[in-house]
Amino acid sequence: MEKIEILFLWMTIFLYAMTFIIQVIGFTWRKSNLEDISKWVLRAGFLFNTATLVIHWINSKHPPVTDTYELNLTGVWITILIFLLFYLLQKIEHSISMVVLPLSFLALGYGYLSGISFDPMGPAFQSPWLIVHVIFAWLAFGSYAIATGAAIFLLLKERNKSSGRLNKLPSTDDLDLTEYRFIVLGFINHAVMIISGAIWAKKLWGHYWNWDPLETWSLIAFLVYAFYLHARSFLNWRMKKSAWMAIVGILILAISFWGVGLFGPTIHPGP
């Protein structure tokens, strides 16, 4: 079973990477048939991602939400699920996958390098709040990643107004709206993640908030997005300004997900 899981994981990484390459080639050289192919490759990759997740769940006998590998595997699955869902709802262009996919297969690679283990769930993890906390953390990340994709395309379109290949994308106004709405969605999920984490922390450690580096980074990211929403609503920050803020937000969030170990020990086992 373990060998099958590793094989499926590599298939997932390979198919996500292929989707990215095919999408980039199709987008750059305006080959719509290649872009159509990339959509099917992505769906195949998602099926392998789902299978890897299920196999790992069966092998470890607990939901895959405890160690670095499990968190990244589950996180990428949720991110791609959100992407596919909103693509099928016709809310986003498939080309946004060019931003979402590199983040996803890098996360999978990082998770794989940290080692696959089938250890049982320790007592601290045996809480329903853990699952709520992890799912909403990745729902927030997925939403913010899509918003970042829209923000990057908005900036590209603003810079190269006459570029033919960018004309295919929605207007900058629509990209701006997409970016805003996905940040709203991410912000609400982010709030649920922080609230569920606080309730869990109270049960586990006796305190809602411990000012742990990971908690603090997560709060900084939350405040940056709160700033984004306020600046947009009341100071009328739109288009370029808000797009840059969306990019800053995802960078800070990425540090809180993967880079917090650089700033010293944490009681939090982050992804």
């Binding site: 016709q90 809310k91 929605p170």
Partner: peptide, 10 residues
């Protein structure tokens, strides 16, 4: 608006 099918980008 995000969850109602209205067309790409809107």
């Amino acid at each position: 608006k995000l969850f109602i099918k209205t067309g790409r980008g809107e």
